[in-house]
Design a protein around this nucleic acid. Structure first.
Lengths: 167, 167
DNA sequence: CAATCTCAGTTGACCCGTCAAGTCAATCCA
DNA sequence: TGGATTGACTTGACGGGTCAACTGAGATTG
């Protein structure tokens, strides 16, 4: 009941893609909206604080943090600058090797994550997990992983490592 | 094997969410990258041209187009201005009612969509559809719809209709 | 022990999106 | 008929992201 997957979508595939595309478009803003409203934090900034909160001493090298946040170094640099201005993060050169920069959560920053987390978790549950049956959640995990793998294998494309890299 | 879904993720839910979050972060840039490389078009701009190409006379009111593109009117206005500068779209006030603006595909614009479509379709197939089994694709459609519904019902939140709208 | 290289991180220029304030045509009353 | 209103865009100011320099610390090498 369906055609070779190439230069045109079959009706079924088209609907699948349209549905996923809509989620891709709506979910991130919806998540951002909740965090912004309740904690004045973008999802990306929340992710930074959350990663730091889980790290020993609440401290991580910028480049490692960029890995956790799936972010280019330059994006991270600007985001951490914002968080620093709000006193939730501090930066200092690594005493052991001055090439690295260590980002650390302040205690105000730790308080912020703790305050922001429950609402965010509830939102993810409400918008993503609760609408699904258990088997669907399990499928979603597997589906997502397959798509991730496809993207990673596609052409060596992966989230920017930063800026440089002239090949 | 799992807990009440509230202030903390169970391991399983955490993995599901982490996997989906990664797709949310990687897939749109991957799609954009292909279109940008092969057609110098963002996914959003492509969507505009595509919607116009499907419309009678290749013409649509800006506000209707905004609906198709899931976009605020102001975002659309800027994007169409870019497409107009590249001669793929023309704008003119609706002769029948000067409050409306009609956006029309030029013939160069129609050629552009036709040239860009096959590569884009192939990319969506490669990154999303082909990695999945048929039942998974079907599940993904249902899962996406459930999430869409949850977002829409959440609090009346829906993609911005534009800017105005106090309240 | 300099000249060079490498690599982490920062920053300037620019692009795109949002929000809020215009603009302007049509319509609605008074 | 003319002054407010409504609704469809458009636009200025601004925030945040990317890319491509740039900076500066440590490793490498002659």
């Amino acid at each position: 009941m369906s055609e070779p997957r190439d230069t045109a979508f079959t009706g079924e595939d088209l609907e699948t893609w349209a549905a996923l595309a809509t989620v891709l478009e709506w979910l991130p803003p919806a998540l951002d909206a909740q965090l912004l409203r309740d904690a004045e934090l973008t999802h990306f900034e929340y992710g930074i604080l959350f990663a730091l909160a889980d790290a020993p001493d609440g401290t991580l090298r910028m480049s490692v943090l960029a890995g956790f946040a799936n972010s280019s170094l330059s994006r991270l640099s600007r985001a951490v600058a914002r968080l620093e201005k709000r006193q939730w993060v501090r930066r200092a050169p690594d005493a052991a090797d001055g090439r690295y920069t260590l980002a650390s959560l302040t205690s105000a920053g730790r308080a912020k994550v703790q305050q922001a987390t429950p609402g965010h978790v509830r939102t993810v549950n409400r918008l993503v997990l609760e609408p699904l049956t258990r088997p669907q959640a399990r499928q979603l995990r597997e589906i997502s992983r397959r798509i991730m793998r496809a993207i990673r294998d596609d052409d060596g494309w992966s989230p920017g490592t930063g800026s440089g890299s002239a090949r």
